[in-house]
Amino acid sequence: MSEPFYNAAPNATRVAPPLPEPRQYPAQKPGNAYLFGTCVLDLFFPEAGLDAIRLLEREGIKVHFPQEQSCCGQPAYTSGYTDEAREVARAQLALFAEDWPLVVPSGSCAGMIRHHYAELFKDEPATLRQVQALAARTFELAEFLLHVCKVEFKDQGSQQKVALHTSCSARREMNTHLHGRALLAQLEKIERVEHDHESECCGFGGTFSVRMPDISGAMVADKTRALQESGAAEVVSADCGCLLNINGALEKQHAPLRGQHLASFLWKRTGGAR
């Protein structure tokens, strides 16, 4: 809150301060970009990371993947282990030193860097400045493809129904649902189908899924049912935590449907070879 308003005269509360401006994107496509792979993607969905690199390369961007990267720190941060989260976050900072965009193929991890790193380093002014600069050039993959690369996809697949699940912290912090929808809408033969309670959480929530397995299980049961009843042949998501949760539950239920990462889906649909 702005300090002057906080101490304003009573009548000043008649007019609320203006709402924050929507994010401004660079007008020029950059020549270089970093990819932050994220820990879950690294071990469980590595192809999606590679597809993200390929999508960016096709846009003429040179992709850099610092090998020393690990995790954004989110699991510890959301569990309340703030010191541990801070040190893991600190280990990432030096790896992305050039003034290139940092592209993250996972909405919640992008949100962590963009919105929560500043909180972690609020008591370290020098690091805070570095973190704020990094946050300003951090983009979720779909957002980057849409608004920075301004991609124009040519659909090369056949008629198909697709459901899009957007991680909830990511949709609220990064608007990933809007970006994902806009990218899918570019694919001519894709019909995006809504599923029941689409905006509702899949029940992952990091350590929530193991701390509260009963509640989390009820949530993912509803989510997987909704996805299966949607009539979609494919489920796509831009968040690997959700995919781990949804796919693990579908497998346990012996259901044939599986979710895949948006990057992989887009790469395949637009004629990309592996």
Binding site: L43, F44, P46, G49, F65, S216, V220, L244, G248
Partner: peptide, 16 residues
């Protein structure tokens, strides 16, 4: 609630 997650054959670090 889930099947045990099986890591991929190679990590993104290696693939990248």
């Amino acid at each position: 609630n889930h099947s045990a997650p099986k890591p991929a054959a190679r990590s993104l670090h290696e693939l990248a």
